[in-house]
Nucleic acid binder design. Sequence first.
DNA 1: TCCCTTATCTATACAATGTTCAGATTATGG
DNA 2: CCATAATCTGAACATTGTATAGATAAGGGA
Lengths: 201, 201
Amino acid sequence: MATRTAIEVPYHHGNLETALVDAAIVLVRKYGPDHLSLRAVSAEVGVSPSASYHHFGDKDALVSAIGNVLFDRLAIMQEKAIAKVNGKGASASIKKFEEMGNAYFAWAISEPNLYRLMLGGFCEINMDEHESKAWNLLRDGLDELAAHGVIDKSARNGGEVIVWSAVHGASSLAIEGLMPPSDFPLVLKSIKRSLGIKPKD
Amino acid sequence: MATRTAIEVPYHHGNLETALVDAAIVLVRKYGPDHLSLRAVSAEVGVSPSASYHHFGDKDALVSAIGNVLFDRLAIMQEKAIAKVNGKGASASIKKFEEMGNAYFAWAISEPNLYRLMLGGFCEINMDEHESKAWNLLRDGLDELAAHGVIDKSARNGGEVIVWSAVHGASSLAIEGLMPPSDFPLVLKSIKRSLGIKPKD
DNA sequence: TCCCTTATCTATACAATGTTCAGATTATGG
DNA sequence: CCATAATCTGAACATTGTATAGATAAGGGA
């Protein structure tokens, strides 16, 4: 199982697979998803280039592994943000929803290269396993809004796709310098408006 | 100036620059923005690899040139779609707005690799020159909606970013297989709702 | 404890890539 | 018509992904 915590003790010989992923993430963050070199990753870990091929059949396989790890990290950030919100009423569910979006956007623009790898066509995303963590978070958030009567059923329908499109689009545009990050509140407000959540300001 | 039509007459020696861009687009479409090879492009045109360096200082420069050309093509598709709508009233302006979004999305998912190149961090987008064509299209569309009283000023504010975020996000997610293309109408409807355009169905 | 099987890693090699540089070719304009 | 600039070629270099064959280490049954 090996739940992939960042630091693990017996490193040099042992858990090469996770070591490669961790080193690759560092390099991708620095130099971007294109420009990732398998040889550089191997060198960073202190291992021969060929060694990687016993754990990943391909460079693309490594990249896909990275992608799925990153989706987990992003989901964890969102969970942390949600956990900070206390209260249980309708307004708390709205606050949680907002903080989920803010956490997503903040993480994306703080890690442009990692985010590009995740959603730029570099990796095959395992929709059923990892990605579901983030997806379920969104689904639960919308369900909670519906349960509190903040949004009605017609707005609930397809809400995941609507929200993710807007938040991902904003993240991507901001990363590419086509939208000032300071405009994200506008986007978030428009999402709430499209869901029928009334702004209180 | 050389407005870059696809076919031009004196080709072998002459307008290498546009020939390289055209050939590169063909290869990117086939194999993706990563996996683009300068040597392959040069071979396709029938020229030495070094020849490219007299027109583009870098591989990245070629890629950026491609990106800006593609933004033009996308804008042209949108213009065509708008031109098909006749009438001049409020409902025509809504129809034009919808068709603009549909054309964007349709082009994006029909050219996933080209779209990835445009907005996946591969190229520096010339915001002031080329990109403005698509941006102005969106701005004018929103202005027209506002002029006909379909949307009010508070919705007009920041409308470009809101709309582009949602449409680009949906395009990107669909391309990466994370959203069924058949869900785009849902996204479009949510955009209209967030702008305060009442659905007529 | 010894040995055999299996997992893991190294060494070497190969074709393809981006890029550079010196030289050849072509066009241009005075 | 020729000198000067623009354009293209050829060969070279370091680096890349990847395949193959062999070395090393680990593990488990006798």
